[in-house]
């Protein structure tokens, strides 16, 4: 395998595998599973965005599902208003144009991430974990109490299904490739970003923030920018999720969902970007298959998590790295 190292092979094989999945599913008469795989990819996008701040920035955010959920809700609410022709904020703001709703989802969730980051990034360590969790809980309760949009029961909405006049999200396969395309674009963008000067500063903050400050970097602003961007990407994943489900409820931003995202990142290998994709695939696959063996699969899954933490610290991606690189990056 001259020219390509193991890492590149891992990325290529994983992405190629995801690319041919619908073909295999169709060939074997399992078309209905394409939707399942699409759901997995959507969570993979969210996991990659979390890796950006968790793996590279060392920010243990236990509230990432909030941005995902807000992105989904923005799409749902705009669609709902357009469908019912009910004014939003006193204006006819509702729209079913996919490009408009998805852009709005990214903007709103990035804005929310900016506001939450503004307060929570003033702290570090245990404080940061608890504060991000608390803010996410606040957002969760906000949507639970929004009776107009279904509250606890959630909101079912009829959406426009054609993206950019080309891709119909009703078509399982076409929508799958759209999501895969967004995932690849996200991976590419994040890869470029973490290797840029900006990414180096963020990683420097993870290693030793005080030193970065001493070198004259406004570390708070760098971290805030990364946090905001990650929130925006998670919002995009949420928008895709809303289109995928045509139904949305506050349960997708329950705090355990944020925990699940962290599990995906660490299970796959944090600070590697591609690892979380593998982590999302592994996690959601287990979540789907373990219940077939035992109704009480969580009693197995919980201790598995503990063992992964204690013994397999580099995650799935770590198995494919040469031993000298297996040393963990993150904190």
């Amino acid at each position: 395998m001259s020219g390509l190292d193991k890492r590149t092979w891992f990325v290529l094989v994983l992405l190629a595998g995801l690319a041919v999945l619908p073909l295999i599913a169709t060939a074997t008469g399992n078309e209905f599973q394409i939707g399942q795989f699409r759901r997995i990819l959507i969570f993979a996008i969210a996991a990659v965005s979390l890796d950006l701040i968790l793996g590279y920035g060392g920010m243990v955010s236990l509230g990432h599902a909030a941005f995902f959920g807000v992105g989904a809700y923005v799409v749902a609410i705009l669609n709902w208003h357009a469908d019912r022709e009910v004014p939003l904020f006193g204006m006819m703001l509702g729209t079913q144009n996919v490009l408009a709703t998805w852009t709005a989802a990214v903007v709103v969730s990035a804005g929310l991430a900016f506001l939450i980051g503004l307060v929570s990034l003033r702290t570090t360590g245990i404080f940061f974990i608890m504060i991000t969790l608390a803010f996410a809980q606040m957002v969760y309760f906000f949507f639970v109490s929004l009776r107009a949009y279904g509250g606890d029961d959630g909101l079912r909405f009829p959406g426009d299904t054609v993206v950019l006049g080309v891709i119909d999200t009703e078509n399982d396969t076409a929508f799958y490739y759209l999501v895969l395309g967004v995932l690849c674009a996200t991976l590419y963008l994040c890869r470029r970003l973490v290797n840029s000067r900006f990414g180096m500063v963020v990683q420097g903050c993870r290693e030793n923030e005080r030193r970065m400050r001493a070198l004259g970097y406004p570390t708070y602003l760098y971290k805030l920018a990364a946090f905001t961007l990650a929130g925006g990407i998670a919002g995009l994943a949420g928008a895709l999720f809303a289109a995928h489900e045509s139904y949305i409820s506050p349960s997708i931003m329950h705090w355990t969902r944020s925990g699940d995202l962290i599990v995906m990142v660490v299970l796959g290998g944090m600070g590697t970007l591609i690892g979380p994709v593998a982590g999302a695939v592994a996690f959601l696959f287990l979540e789907k298959t373990l219940p077939d063996y035992t109704e009480h699969w969580m009693i197995v899954f919980g201790p598995i998590l503990l063992l992964v933490v204690l013994f397999a610290r580099r995650g799935i991606f770590g198995w494919f790295l040469p031993p000298e690189e297996r040393d963990r990056h993150g904190h």
Binding site: V60, I129, G259, P303, L306, G330
Partner: peptide, 10 residues
Amino acid sequence: HLDQVLATFG
């Protein structure tokens, strides 16, 4: 802290 979050989440 991340390890602790994960393990106690488990």
